[in-house]
Design a protein around this nucleic acid. Structure first.
Lengths: 117, 117
DNA sequence: TGTCCATATGAATGATGGCTCATGTTTGAA
DNA sequence: TTCAAACATGAGCCATCATTCATATGGACA
């Protein structure tokens, strides 16, 4: 439990100060969210757990590509996979991942991306 | 104004469904936060507005490198620059950027990054 | 006007990353 | 135990990108 959770304030901005180590760590995890394919995989898993083949069909990628990205996400601790018969069912690791996803999407939608052609 | 803002609930997870277009847009903006150098630049600007030279000194980068990244961040609408005498003072574009930064850092610190060497 | 300071820009480079193709591994069933 | 389904893995390829080096631009001040 942290101070900002107790205060419950939406206006208290903590003005984070980052050392090089945590900057690298945060950057690594954000990179995992910073690709269209992985965003689709993660938001699909946010709806409900999926097997690899289900994911591939849902997001329109090849099985191998999905499997590669799942390993990345699993290694970073963002998702977990449990075996169920022949299949392996993946889901988001915990609620922090889900919240990070939600808030990222919402904030960025409010920003309106001025992407240069 | 959105429904979740009115409700003010911290527990209501919106389970975002993404089409390919917004997935790409969100990914682009998240990429801007997904590098150590830009994270340091952005969190430094979160503390207070800085000129390019001040930023370069603060984060330990060359002026040219900082300028290149500032252009990227400016183009994406994450920061703005105002001229002040000879210098150009950069600041975060708005509160959404600051909140996105804060929440990303906080969630990721709670996750504990299992980065494979 | 000319010079210095502050910032921007372009090209080149080394590194990283996502995808495909081919193949390996494990499980369940015949 | 043999086969097929589901998933994982490794190598190679092409694209993207962060940085550096060199140079250009533009305002300030004498």
């Amino acid at each position: 439990m942290h101070a900002d959770e107790v205060m419950g304030g939406r206006d208290a901005l903590a003005a984070v100060r980052l050392d090089d180590a945590t900057a690298a760590s945060v950057a690594t995890t954000l990179q995992a969210l910073a690709t269209p394919s992985r965003l689709l995989i993660l938001t699909t898993l946010q709806q409900s757990p999926h097997s690899v083949t289900q994911l591939a069909a849902e997001v329109g990628m090849e099985q191998s590509a999905v499997s590669h990205q799942l390993r990345l996400l699993r290694t970073l601790g963002l998702i977990t996979g449990r075996r169920d018969g022949r299949r392996i069912v993946y889901r988001l690791y915990d609620d922090h991942v889900a919240q990070l996803l939600d808030q990222a999407v919402h904030h960025i939608e409010h920003l309106g991306v001025h992407d240069p052609h």
